[in-house]
Write a protein that binds this DNA or RNA. Structure first.
Lengths: 123, 123
DNA sequence: TGCATATAATCGCTTAAGCGGGTACATGCA
DNA sequence: TGCATGTACCCGCTTAAGCGATTATATGCA
């Protein structure tokens, strides 16, 4: 029971819950992607991603300079059971604002072929 | 999104999550029942139930001296969607210890026709 | 009505944890 | 080395937890 409580505690923050919702719909994102879409500072993004990592909700993968995060997908974990159970619930509630940010961010990323050369952000 | 984060925050405590799991399996319980089964103090039980009430996860109903709590069942609320989605997950994880407590507690209650005349507890 | 009892909610206090901003540090690439 | 990316740590603030004591509400009885 405590294991589940810890998972829900990790989901009990708007920043982290939005991260999970984005990862549910996008599959994999690097820290700078999440910073850009959520419009938060790098240290804040990194800190919450570490929290999610230690809680077992996501996994990380380094590729050169970038660190990519994706949902923990091992079916045997409590975390994946929870995200599976609530996935539809929270992705359907991704705010329009966030969808818009996501859209413009990925558009810029494609144009620049790099997630962090967009002058309009502080990335 | 914040609404869901607040719900998960409410579930992110072992005491409150156990209360939700018990209410899922029992339907309705008074404060003294929850105190007894979870072996917690009255103030602790009351405080966490108020937390769940304000978070919209449960409703209360006074009947004489007793106050009964049950899950929020209005299908339109985010809270009920969440508890529905995770119900099987957490009730199947009700610890054996808790099931045992639940069993002995309800047995005593039936014998005494009163939840608070059991000398073996501090209720 | 007055009083004792049972149940539940709240208050005051202390302690622990979480969150945010900022900044120093580590890592990897050119 | 210089630069970009990401992490770790510090500080201040807020929230929430536990505990015991007190207060509020309802019931039962003389």
């Amino acid at each position: 029971m405590k294991a589940y409580a810890d998972i829900f505690k990790a989901l009990g923050d708007e920043t982290r819950l939005s991260m999970i919702a984005l990862l549910l719909s996008q599959g994999e994102m690097c820290v700078c992607d999440l910073m850009g879409v959520l419009a938060i500072s790098q240290s804040k993004a990194s800190r919450h991603l570490r929290y999610l990592l230690h809680a077992g909700l996501v996994t990380d993968r380094r590729e050169g300079v970038w660190v990519y995060y994706r949902l923990q997908e091992s079916r045997k974990t409590e975390a994946s059971r929870v995200t599976t159970a609530i996935g539809n619930l929270i992705t359907s509630r991704l705010s329009d604002d966030l969808k818009m940010r996501m859209h413009t961010w990925t558009a810029n990323k494609q144009n620049n072929d790099n997630c962090c050369t967009d002058n309009s952000t502080t990335c």
